[in-house]
């Protein structure tokens, strides 16, 4: 059976590959072991080779660097045609990327260019028989669906970042006969009809919930914007990002990029603190992939406890300072 497993990898300028690429590479390598198909990475940018050393350590079959000054900043109108122009000639069987904000924007357009359906936000990807099976949340996160592709490849999927379910032990590499490297200077065939003209930066760049290995999220129990400082303090102790439920984002106590849930971001960190979050299905859908969930809520009947390993019934304002103290004692 022909075809390759193509993985789109995202980097962060100075910090190397995004953390979300870890789960992605593991899932790709697992598929490769099950099918014997090679895994090939695609990196794009002005200088995609800056991540080369890090990717080389993953022991993939091939790395394709698509390089162009025009690819300096992400813009779907440039990234999608560049990716398509290279990958279409690689006989792709599966094309996978992270369900990051960038992935969510890029992959539907790529699917349209290949003229195939795609499945987003997969929590699990497995090879069964000749086909590919995935599991993803549906119906407001109350249910999960197992889906399979019935048409012709490529099968395009995006994977929830940090998906704990694909974590596999041991060596990541599928085949380690030496990795081929290939550089492609990309020149756009035509000037796109839309383009990125400006990036407006936020003053303070905080850790993104999609990238974090731990998340401290606050819900309705928080009364004021300033109360999030308490969560930030806890987050700092845990090297965590601060998240929020929809209720507090709607109430303007937290900014939209912090929102975890179906209408916000779907996360799967190693540790998730749900503080004063009751656990509406939409919120659960956004965090259920987390490895360990700690819930603090006044109401013992709150649904969030059904998804938590550890629970404390109590007031966030009383418990959180004590947790910070206990963590400080640990440092000491």
């Amino acid at each position: 059976m022909n075809g390759r497993i193509i993985v789109f990898l995202e980097g962060k300028k100075k910090e190397g590959l995004k953390k979300s690429t870890g789960a992605l590479l593991k899932a790709a390598c697992l598929l490769s072991r099950q099918t014997g198909k090679p895994v090939e990475a695609v990196l794009m940018g002005e200088d995609p080779k800056q991540y080369g050393e890090e990717v080389l350590r993953k022991g993939l079959n091939c790395i394709h660097y698509i390089k162009s000054a025009e690819l300096k900043d992400y813009d779907v109108h440039r990234y999608a045609p560049a990716f398509y122009s290279v990958v279409k000639d690689l006989t792709p069987w599966v094309i996978m990327g992270g369900s990051t904000l960038l992935g969510k924007d890029l992959f539907p357009r790529i699917a349209a260019m290949f003229s195939v359906p795609m499945i987003s936000d997969c929590q699990k990807i497995t090879f069964e028989g000749p086909g590919l099976k995935v599991v993803k949340a549906c119906f407001y996160g109350k249910k999960q669906a197992e889906l399979s592709f019935t048409g012709n490849p490529p099968y395009i999927v995006t994977l929830v970042p940090n998906s704990a379910e694909v974590e596999i032990e041991g060596q990541e590499a599928a085949v380690a006969e030496g990795t081929k490297e290939r550089e492609i200077e990309y020149i756009a065939a035509e000037e796109p009809k839309g383009r990125l003209v400006e990036i407006i930066m936020k003053e303070t760049e905080k850790q993104d919930v999609l990238e974090a290995e731990a998340i401290v999220a606050g819900g309705r129990a928080l009364k004021e914007k300033a109360d999030f400082l308490l969560l930030e303090e806890l987050a700092e102790k845990l090297d965590a990002a601060v998240g929020a439920s929809r209720a507090v984002v709607d109430a303007d106590l937290a900014s939209p990029e912090m929102q975890v849930g179906q209408s916000g971001k779907t996360v799967a960190p190693k540790l998730y603190f749900a503080l004063g979050i009751s656990g509406a299905a939409q919120h659960i859908a956004g965090m259920r992939g987390s490895k360990v969930v700690v819930a603090v809520n006044k109401d013992k009947q709150a649904p969030v406890f059904n998804y938590a390993q550890y629970g404390i019934v109590g007031d966030v304002y009383q418990i959180v300072p004590e947790v910070i103290r206990a963590l400080t004692d640990l440092d000491g």
């Binding site: 195939v116 359906p117 499945i119 099976k133 949340a137 549906c138 119906f139 996160g141 109350k142 249910k143 999960q144 669906a145 197992e146 889906l147 399979s148 592709f149 019935t150 048409g151 299905a281 659960i284 859908a285 259920r288 969930v293 819930a295 013992k300 406890f305 059904n306 998804y307 938590a308 390993q309 550890y310 629970g311 404390i312 019934v313």
Partner: peptide, 21 residues
Amino acid sequence: LYGIKVERVFAAPEKGVCKFI
């Protein structure tokens, strides 16, 4: 218009037993 088959839909599993502290 298809290309994807829904094999099964199931209630999202709960995470397991919560240890109350």
